[in-house]
Design a protein around this nucleic acid. Structure first.
Lengths: 149, 149
DNA sequence: GCGTACTATGAAAGTGAATTTCATTATCAT
DNA sequence: ATGATAATGAAATTCACTTTCATAGTACGC
C-alpha cells in the first residue's frame, strides 16, 4: 500500500506532475476502502482525516487514477458514478435492485466468449462492462418469489 | 405498429391513464426510429411533426415506455441516456470509442453463462447490460493497430 | 536556504441532463 | 355538457460533474 502510493507518485512526477498532501489522502482512503465508492462517499471519508479537502480534488484524483489505470469507473445506474481499485483482476457485478447489494464475480468463460464475439465483428476490444441486475437471495425470498424463475 | 400503439394505449387506459396526442407522436417516432436515440435527438424528430411538443413529454413518455417494458434504457457513457425499443429479442452492444459506432450482437452462450453465474450466487436475474468498448475495424486500421490484439 | 516556474487546490460559478412544479389544457366517465 | 383527473409544457430546480481563477504548495535551479 505504502509502496503503491509511492509508485503512483513517482509516475506522476515522471509525467511532469507534483505531489500533494490532499491527493495523497484521497488515494490512501480510496485504496483502503476496497469497495465501489462514489465521489460523495469518498469525500466524506477523506474529510474525517482532512476536513479541508474539497470534493473537486476527489473528482480530479479519481479521474487521474482512472487515466493511469489504477482505478475503474463504474455505473450501476444510480445517477452517480462509482470507482473501484483496478489492482485486482477483472470482475463483473451482480446488482440487487431491491436492496442495492453488489456482488462481484468473475467468469473466464464469459470473458472468452466476449472476446470471440468482439473479434468476430472486427472489433479490437479495450474494455467491457457487464452488470446483471436482479434480486439477491434475501430480497427474492422476502418478496415471495418462487424458487424457479 | 398501429396495433402496437393501440395496445399500449389500452394498457395505459387500464392502469387509469389517459391518451394524449403528444405522447402518441412521441411513441410513434420512437418505434419508427429503430435505433438508440437520446431524448434530445428524439425531441428534434418529434418536433418536425409536432413543434409544440416539449422535451419534458419526451422524457416522460420514454420513462413510461421503459416502465411498461416497451423500451430499454442504455448508457454508452456519453453523458446522456439512450433509449431503444424493447420489442426485438435481447442483444448487447459493441461500442467504438473512436468513432462512436454501435454494433448490436446477441450470443445465446453468453446469456446462458450469465444466467448460470447469477443463479450460482442466489440471484434472481431480471435484466443485464453488457457493453464491450474498443475500436471498430476501420478505426483500428486507421490508428495502425496490429492484427493481433 | 531562496527564488522561480510550475502544478495542485478549493470555493464558487458554470454545464447539462434529468426531474419537479404548477397553471393550463385535454381526455374520460356520467 | 360537466366534473374529475390525467397530461402537457415552460420555467424552475436538482444534482453530478466540470471549469475557472486566485491562492497555496511543490520541485528544481541557483
Amino acid at each position: 500500500m505504502e509502496h503503491l502510493l509511492l509508485r503512483i507518485d513517482r509516475e506522476i512526477l515522471a509525467a511532469g506532475g507534483k505531489r500533494s498532501r490532499s491527493r495523497a489522502v484521497v488515494m490512501e482512503r480510496f485504496f483502503r476502502a476496497r469497495k465501489h465508492v462514489t465521489v460523495e462517499e469518498l469525500t466524506r471519508v477523506v474529510r474525517k482525516a482532512s476536513p479541508h479537502v474539497g470534493a473537486v480534488t476527489v473528482y480530479r484524483t479519481l479521474k487521474l487514477l482512472a487515466r493511469m489505470g489504477y482505478a475503474k469507473e463504474l455505473d450501476f445506474g444510480e445517477g452517480a458514478r462509482r470507482y473501484e481499485s483496478n489492482l485486482e483482476s477483472h470482475h463483473d457485478h451482480l446488482v440487487c435492485t431491491a436492496c442495492g447489494t453488489v456482488i462481484e464475480f468473475k467468469d473466464p468463460d464469459i470473458e472468452k466468449l466476449q472476446d470471440l464475439v468482439t473479434r468476430r465483428h472486427g472489433f479490437r476490444p479495450t474494455a467491457h462492462r457487464l452488470e446483471i441486475f436482479g434480486h439477491c437471495r434475501k430480497c427474492a425470498a422476502e418478496s415471495g418469489e418462487g424458487r424457479r424463475g
